[in-house]
Design a protein around this nucleic acid. Structure first.
Lengths: 152, 152
DNA sequence: GGTGAAATTTTAGGTGC
DNA sequence: GCACCTAAAATTTCACC
């Protein structure tokens, strides 16, 4: 899939605001509505655009704590990994799960109401997955920024 | 701002698909269009919904490498921190910047085309910020999952 | 890539419960 | 607070050039 200048502009605009109307997008990129819409549909069909999502303000929902948790499993078997990944995906407070290089196996991005509920979450929810050897939590003291824009 | 059951349903639906029409949302949550739209506008005005963003597929854009980089500054002054945060925000490949607890000062989420361009990025772009003492890179070998859904 | 028209959606106003 | 109705404005989407 090759992206020309106009495709890139459209992607930038849609990443910034997914609800921009096609006619406004078309005007901005100097196209008329139909070819503009055709491009967007093509970007969706080719999975360059994977979806459109409302971003919520965690604070407004009472979610004030963000933590990166490093996890090491007690066994390096495929079945332990699969079971861990399956279990952890069910936990709504875990927003992201990555297999990483280095001395830990996984990096989890976890959100919680406060440090107390995070502690409780680690103890009762994460802790109940029995193939975990140990967990190291890195608390985010402040999010300097978070971009919704990929470099093109 | 208090959220009742219907507000929560709307938030879940919009996080999953920001382009769902109001009438479809209204049907799903058992409301008619007008009150449904009023709720959405209220959620936007009160900043519970901070925006709507198209999510792109990094692979389709040739961005195959994701890295978490831990950064320690050489001085613990406010001015060094401000200058670092300001400089790093200008770098398009840095998607996220967090002040963290522990032995490092910052955790950066960085995306790049491949490991070679990541190396080059760290050397020339990050490296040019002179208050950095050292950087430790944790490469993401595989994203198990990434949710666009906050727990309600 | 563009035009024009149809179909759909958004948005607002008004009534009554 | 909501349902229901109506209707204008805006937007999406289509066949066709």
């Amino acid at each position: 899939m090759s992206l020309d200048k106009k495709d890139q502009q459209l992607l930038t605009l849609l990443q910034s605001n997914a609800r921009t109307s096609v006619s406004e997008l078309a005007t901005t990129v100097s196209l008329s509505d139909t070819p503009c819409l055709r491009r967007i549909k093509k970007l969706e069909a080719s999975k360059v655009i994977s979806g459109y999502h409302a971003a919520l303000n965690p604070r407004a929902l009472g979610l004030n704590v963000l933590v990166y948790a490093f996890v090491r499993l007690s066994q390096n078997s495929v079945s332990a990994a699969n079971m861990f990944e399956e279990q952890v995906e069910k936990l709504n407070h875990v927003l992201e799960c990555s297999v990483i290089s280095g001395s830990y196996d996984y990096l989890l991005k976890i959100i919680a109401a406060d440090l107390e509920s995070y502690e409780s979450f680690v103890k009762h929810k994460l802790g109940s997955i029995n193939c975990i050897a140990n967990i190291e939590s890195t608390v985010v003291l402040k999010q300097t920024f978070s971009k919704k824009q990929l470099p093109l």
